[in-house]
Computed example of a mutant assay.
Amino acid sequence: MAKQPEPESFMDMFSKIGRDLRMPQVDVDAILSHHRKNLEALEKSARATAAGASSIMARQREVLQDSLREVTEFSQNYRAPGNPQELIAKQADFARRSFEAAVKNAGDVADIVKKSGAESVDILRARIKEAMDEIRQSYEKK
């Protein structure tokens, strides 16, 4: 039996139709470069987010260690005074210091989250602007 010729691939047929109709050439390298830049921007954004999460966890660990140290110091230095007013004053002072530390630490964590999110968004925003410039330039060439 005679060997049947291999049928053309879909891409070959599509390319032939494009040449026959004189359709504009598709710059595959430019498309890949564009998407590569998009993926790189997403990767940078993800790294910034991960760094922020790491900073938050480190700060929370510090807060926990400070809190445990403070509670330990308070309990070791605690001696029940004979006067109930002194006992209440010591407990109120400890509660006030604990509350102030909690508010300060919550503010610190919120700042870290804000900075991390802003950095991540700025990276993506810059890439979007760059992509829009690329598109505008490609139309200007034509």
Rank of each mutant, 00 (worst) to 15 (best):
M57T: 12
E73W: 04
G117P: 02
S120H: 00
Y139W: 12
A58W: 05
I123W: 00
K142E: 08
E86G: 03
V109C: 03
E8H: 10
Q65L: 08
R59V: 05
Q137I: 09
N38C: 11
I17L: 14
R79E: 08
E100D: 12
I123G: 00
E40G: 04
D66M: 07
E40M: 11
M13K: 14
L32K: 11
N77A: 13
A101L: 04
Q4I: 12
R97V: 02
E62P: 03
G52L: 01
D29L: 03
R61S: 10
D12W: 02
K90C: 02
R127N: 13
Q76T: 10
I135M: 13
A89K: 15
E134Y: 02
K115H: 05
Q25S: 13
A48I: 00
R125N: 10
D66A: 15
H34N: 10
A92N: 11
I56N: 00
I128E: 08
A48L: 06
M1E: 09
M57D: 07
D111F: 05
D93G: 07
K3D: 09
E73P: 00
S116E: 00
E62A: 11
M23S: 08
G107V: 01
F74W: 06
S120F: 00
P84K: 01
R125V: 12
V71Y: 11
K114R: 13
A41E: 00
A80P: 05
A53D: 03
A89W: 11
K129H: 11
M13R: 15
D20S: 13
E140M: 11
Q85E: 13
Y139I: 10
Q91V: 03
M23P: 01
V26C: 06
K44V: 01
S33A: 14
S120G: 04
F94R: 06
A2R: 14
Q91R: 07
A80Q: 14
I88K: 14
Q91F: 05
V109D: 03
R97N: 05
G52H: 00
D133T: 05
K37H: 14
A101N: 06
I31L: 13
Y139T: 08
E134A: 12
D133G: 04
N77D: 07
V121A: 11
A80S: 10
A51V: 06
R136Y: 09
G52R: 00
V121Y: 10
D108I: 03
Y78K: 03
M13I: 07
G52F: 02
Y139V: 09
I112T: 01
D29F: 02
Q25K: 15
P7W: 04
R59Q: 09
S54H: 11
V113G: 03
A50I: 06
D29R: 10
